[in-house]
Design a protein around this nucleic acid. Structure first.
Lengths: 215, 215
DNA sequence: ATGCTTGGATAGTGGCACTCCCCAACCGGG
DNA sequence: CCCGGTTGGGGAGTGCCACTATCCAAGCAT
């Protein structure tokens, strides 16, 4: 199919597809002549994934490129590819280590992971800490600076809850053929984030109504 | 305190504070002379909240203004203020109702809410749907378009999990004095989002290691 | 008086995600 | 074979956003 048809079937403008091609988010089509190229179903599928990651998952174009590159790095084992892809996901500002509140937050996070029996820093000993761990530290620091408590005991219930979500995530991934695991894991990790946050806000509204309903 | 001291104590540059003042995120200081103003602890507290919402919670400046305006709208009841504030939180692109997949997603979401016993659309009957509900529909649509299943049965476990998180959220809010409930609810809703997502990614890594550890 | 700081206003910056436009190469009809 | 319309590549431009730099008059400190 031609660029125009790819555009029509995906609902993405040709200008935007050309931009993604330039940015390396999409492989170039098979060149038919010097000025024309042919795209296939794989391009369409990839384009839809790109769009979903960027628009729904709010991932910056640069990160999306890294994530997608990891997805199909044939030189890596399945586990390494998944790790690399999830590693490239956006994770907000790095903790400000000049702030003493950050040190406290780090201790809280470490103690939490230890109590949960998870790997310290989200990785094997000695390795750099996972971006998700840094994200957690940044958020705990901000909460502490605002005067909201964030002790291990406050965080633990949330961790238990996300542990359950992760089990459900992995169950869902395992429905697919092993060669699709990495893409499924990335897509489900990213695209279930708005689902989880949306459900949380709805659940809060419901619970709030239940507790404070007096009109 | 003067602008310079506010800047030093918050770690935010004077230029940025002036920008926030212009944008109405911060109340103007008490004018001392024609060219000087005095700020107090309340300004400092507010500034820290603004920074946390924008930097850690990734809320756009415009939304932050609306959220903060709702926080202290004296004309509204506590519940209405909270509703207005949470309503103003960012929620991604609106569902594309010209896409038939959106209609399916809407049906899935409705059925899910019904099964959970939550208000349809996250609101009272007839009222416009909550932004969080629209966010959910958008995400379900994107997943469906990518070929990932998103049936009611797939979503329900996540909803149960977030129901528990919401109970924990509200418990935490109730530790504060009633007059602080609204601010606490907003801060905890927004700032626990990175905590939850970070914990989920760490939990996934842990669960993945548990299932696929073979080195 | 003078030389610093202060705070308000305006204009500018850099990054990001597109989007416009031109051009040369192609394709199809007459 | 010619010619109008279409295609894809590429560079430049757009709009938005979150700041940031500069200027200026008014203060305060010595």
């Amino acid at each position: 199919m031609r660029l125009a048809e790819l555009s029509a079937r995906s609902g993405v403008s040709t200008a935007t597809i050309k931009y993604y091609l330039r940015e390396g988010l999409l492989h170039p089509g098979r060149r038919i002549t010097a000025t024309q190229a042919e795209y296939d179903e794989e391009h369409l599928r990839r384009l839809r994934l790109v769009r979903a990651l960027i628009q729904v998952g709010r991932i910056p174009v640069n990160s999306a490129r890294e994530v997608l590159a990891a997805l199909q790095d044939e030189g890596l084992s399945r586990n390494r590819r998944l790790g690399t892809a999830v590693w490239a996901l956006p994770h907000g500002p790095a903790p400000d280590d000049s702030d003493p509140a950050t040190a406290t937050a780090r201790r809280t996070a470490d103690e939490l992971l230890e109590r949960l029996g998870w790997c310290p820093g989200g990785t094997a000993a000695g390795a750099p800490a996972a971006p998700a761990y840094e994200m957690l530290v940044t958020a705990i620091t901000a909460l502490a600076r605002l005067g909201y408590p964030c002790a291990v005991a406050d965080l633990e219930p949330y961790a238990r809850v996300m542990e359950q979500a992760a089990v459900d995530d992995l169950d869902m991934v395992e429905r697919y053929a092993p060669e699709d695991h990495v893409e499924a894991a990335v897509a489900l990790t990213v695209l279930y984030e708005p689902v989880l946050l949306g459900l949380r806000r709805l659940a809060q509204a419901e619970e709030s109504r239940r507790r404070f309903e007096e009109e």
